[in-house]
Simulated assay, not measured.
Amino acid sequence: MEFGIRSTLLAATVLAASFAATQAHAGISSTAQPHPNLLPSCGEGDPNPPIQDVVRLRAARTLGATPEEIHARFASVVETNFSQGSTSLILSRLSDKELAGIARVYKQSNAGLPPKLLDVFASRLSAKELVRVAGTFGVSDVSAAVQRSASPSVATLYTARVAAGEVKVPTTVMPMSGPAPTRYMTLEEIYLEFRTAPVGSLGAGAALSETIIYAGGQVAAAAGIGWEIGTQVGSLIQEYDPSAWDAIGGTTAGVVERVQNAANSITNSTGVQRGINEHAADGMFQYPVSSSNDPYGDWDDTYDLGADEGDGCFN
């Protein structure tokens, strides 16, 4: 019973990442999303700290009342990410395994609704790119979207490529294995959400870093929660970024312990120290968020890290 309660807590709180559907950044730029002016000395802090609290309370205002409502938000978030960003660039940064994961979870989240994401793809991608998408989202569904939304020239080229047998179904389309699939899926949704956002789309490491920081920042400090984050994110690392798996620990116990400690340290800290802990978590993946043009992360997920960096804490 206790384990089930922790599972419900983890699923409900971590899935709050879906609040970002209408808050996505337009691009990766220090000027794309204005941030408060920061003082030059580490520890002196943000002169306008309430903004930080507003960012963290957005989830509470938009979180669904039921698990079905919460999961349904994944589809709209991904649709927004691909619509507001460079669709072709985001797609090019995704591995076949990640694209297959997005297709699988999107279909689950969007069940019974028009597949708006496929229309975004059809209206923005080349025929060659659409053929790749068809390998994971399905030829019939993508072809229907092409007929609805692609330009005549793209539709003609796409149809010819499909007829020539160019659609390849990746061998990684099957669902991933991992501990407690229902709870595991919630963190996979968050990872895939970040993976299609401006900072997270830079690479798997950036999205994984943001996932750990979000989970550590949003999940209440409760017995066992850190371990669950460690096991589930560990599975994501092994599945989507195996080189990082080796660098972080190379064994299940080693990776789980480091992720668990990183998440717990973020949960149990505030202000400057929280930013330092977020930076340390980012370090597991060679600091992809810290070194990006927007260290505040997607939807200010790594707000404290960005504030500390602006204050010169990591110089």
Rank of each mutant, 00 (worst) to 15 (best):
L91A: 08
L91K: 06
S92R: 10
R93A: 06
L94F: 10
D96N: 01
D96F: 09
D96Q: 13
K97M: 10
K97H: 06
E98P: 08
E98N: 09
L99V: 09
G101W: 10
G101V: 06
R104T: 07
R104Q: 14
V105N: 07
S109D: 02
N110M: 05
A111R: 07
A111W: 05
G112H: 05
G112I: 04
G112N: 11
L113C: 07
L113Y: 06
L113P: 05
P114S: 01
K116P: 04
K116F: 00
L117C: 12
L118P: 11
L118V: 06
D119K: 10
A122W: 01
A122F: 09
A122K: 03
A122V: 02
A122T: 10
S123H: 06
S123G: 03
R124Y: 02
L125M: 09
S126D: 02
A127R: 05
A127F: 11
A127W: 00
A127P: 00
A127T: 04
K128V: 08
L130V: 12
R132L: 03
R132K: 08
A134L: 13
A134I: 14
G135H: 00
G138P: 05
D141M: 15
A144S: 14
A144G: 15
A145L: 11
V146S: 02
V146L: 08
V146F: 00
Q147I: 04
Q147V: 13
R148T: 07
S149L: 04
A150I: 12
A150Q: 00
A150K: 04
P152E: 05
S153R: 13
S153C: 02
V154C: 03
V154T: 14
A155M: 06
A155F: 07
T156C: 12
L157P: 00
L157M: 11
Y158M: 10
T159E: 14
T159C: 03
V162T: 04
V162F: 11
A164N: 08
A164M: 02
G165C: 03
G165F: 09
E166L: 03
E166A: 15
V167Q: 14
K168G: 00
